[in-house]
Amino acid sequence: MTRVHPGAFGTLVKGRRIASVTGTNGKTTTSHLLAAAIRAGLGTDAARLVTNADGANLHYGIASALAKAPKADLAVLETDERVVADLIAAGRPEVLVMLNFSRDQLDRNHEIKFLARSWREALERAGEAGPVVVANSDDPLITWAVEKARRVIWVDTPSKWSADAVLCPACGGILERVDPNPDEPQGRWDCPSCPLTEHSPDYQVRDGLIALPDGRVVDPQLKVPGSFNVSNAACALAAAVEMGVGVEDALRGFRTVEAPAGRFSVATFGDVSARLILSKNPAGWAESLALLSTPTVVLAIDAVAADGKDVSWLWDVDFEQLAGKHVVCTGPRAYDLAVRLEYAEVSHTVVLDLADALRAVTDAPQPVDLISTYTPFQKLLKMAGLR
């Protein structure tokens, strides 16, 4: 689309009510949740909504999705971090959801503060014409990036990963955690050297529930697993309400989402069934490893352009928590993972071919948990007939 018409992106994003979702992790699932919430709120007018549901979130992917629905006046757009500034300028989104910011594919994205600065500058340029931002208050880089937004809805989404939030993005000082309590075991973050600090939330996630601005507490009852998906749902809920959807309608829509773009689906490969979990970076792996429940697990690793070519991130992941399980390492970079597991003292075997690795776990309790980086995950979806 953009090769035939280089200006297609800018042309196609104009004249629609747009809700955009961005961040390092959770974009696809959050976009599916938000789209489902808006469909539930629209009822029979669901055809008005277009979304890039397969996760194609760069300029050409967004343009392609919009070109297929020229009459849709509502759009939920999963947006790559590098596209956010252009979308703010060209599309004037009504709502922009900013989930989190952490290291991801550093050979392509390099320093993440550079991207955050582009968001900050785009929001400042947009001024009063800019979007309402739904922002993760637990993330210092997100907080800094949205300081210039015209209005921010803060969502407290506790995370297992804080290694990319050590230094203050405003002044470079070392961030501190203050006021720990049973509800916030890590405490709120604060910079003692400048005014940047964690904001009081409008929406708050605690123990699998979502506290709303009016004091109500709701149980999302999601069909996708993990505490991180409750956080994704809280952000989607805040965005849906801002778009005019009622809370109950939004929650009803959430409960129709089961396996967004194949994530968390249980797929069959001959005599083996596997629950497929996509993880692309240390923060994602930190959350996904907590979901593993089977004694044998398969971990698939590659490092081509779509995965990020640098696999040094393996040493930032707490694979030690897999002690007591048996891990089958597969994919072109399986031996890199095996070295990391050796140091973690985790039992493992290496089966380079993905299909052979699945056959190697035929005797394990089914379904087998399988975590994969992006490229093997796409191959798995094709093998299972899910794509």
Rank of each mutant, 00 (worst) to 15 (best):
T2V: 10
R3D: 15
V4G: 08
A8L: 14
T11A: 14
L12Q: 06
G15T: 11
K27V: 00
T29N: 06
L34N: 03
G43W: 05
R48A: 12
A56V: 00
H59Q: 03
A63E: 02
L66E: 01
L66D: 04
P70C: 01
P70H: 02
A75C: 06
V76K: 00
A85K: 10
D86F: 07
R92M: 05
P93D: 03
P93L: 00
E94Y: 10
V95M: 07
M98E: 09
L99K: 08
N100D: 12
Q105D: 04
H110K: 02
K113S: 12
L115G: 14
R117Y: 13
W119M: 11
A126K: 06
A129S: 13
V146R: 12
E147M: 13
R150Q: 04
W154V: 09
V155A: 06
T157A: 10
P158E: 07
S159T: 15
S162E: 11
A165M: 11
C171I: 08
L175Q: 11
D179K: 11
P180M: 01
D183K: 13
S193N: 15
T197E: 10
H199T: 10
P201T: 03
Y203V: 09
V205I: 02
D207T: 05
P213V: 06
P213F: 07
D214V: 07
V217H: 10
D219W: 07
P220Y: 03
Q221F: 07
F228N: 05
V230Q: 02
S231I: 00
A238E: 01
E242Y: 01
M243T: 02
E248M: 04
E248D: 14
A250Y: 01
L251T: 05
T256D: 03
V257L: 11
A267R: 14
G270R: 02
G270S: 06
N281F: 00
S288G: 09
D302R: 01
D302E: 09
G308C: 00
V317K: 00
D318H: 07
E320M: 02
A323D: 02
G324C: 10
V327F: 11
V328N: 11
Y335E: 15
Y335T: 13
L337A: 14
L341N: 14
Y343P: 13
V346H: 04
V346E: 04
A357Y: 03
Q366V: 14
Q366M: 13
M383I: 05
